[in-house]
Amino acid sequence: MLTPLTVALAVAALALAAWCGWAAWRDQPTKDWHFAGMAVVTLLGLAQLVVGVVELARGRQPADGAVIFVAYLLGVLVCLPVVGLISLSERTRWGSLSVVAGALVLAVLQVRLYDIWGGGTGG
């Protein structure tokens, strides 16, 4: 697994959470730029999925099993699109907070992915 990508995704997700949290703090819904941010993080998630599948195809095995690994990768991918849609249907600060929740979940998923892949010992 590509550790730099995992770290980058976690950091980007936290930044997105802070950004949308700021919008919620100022009582604002998500704006176009927020969606651009979600798109960037989701693209990183897509890259992670591709890298993960390639690694699996090359015969490397995650410590906790391939099924859970791929499930988490898919979770990372759909996470932000789902909360993005929710924030589109709720054009208030609460929509922004929903994106915050989704981004935090994404960051947690990255930590879990790291464990699932190497158990924290090997890359």
């Binding site: 909360v83 709720e90 929903s98 929740a101």
Partner: peptide, 10 residues
């Protein structure tokens, strides 16, 4: 809706 939407998300 409103805060409830956040609850739905969670």
């Amino acid at each position: 809706t409103g805060p409830g939407r956040l609850l739905v998300t969670l």
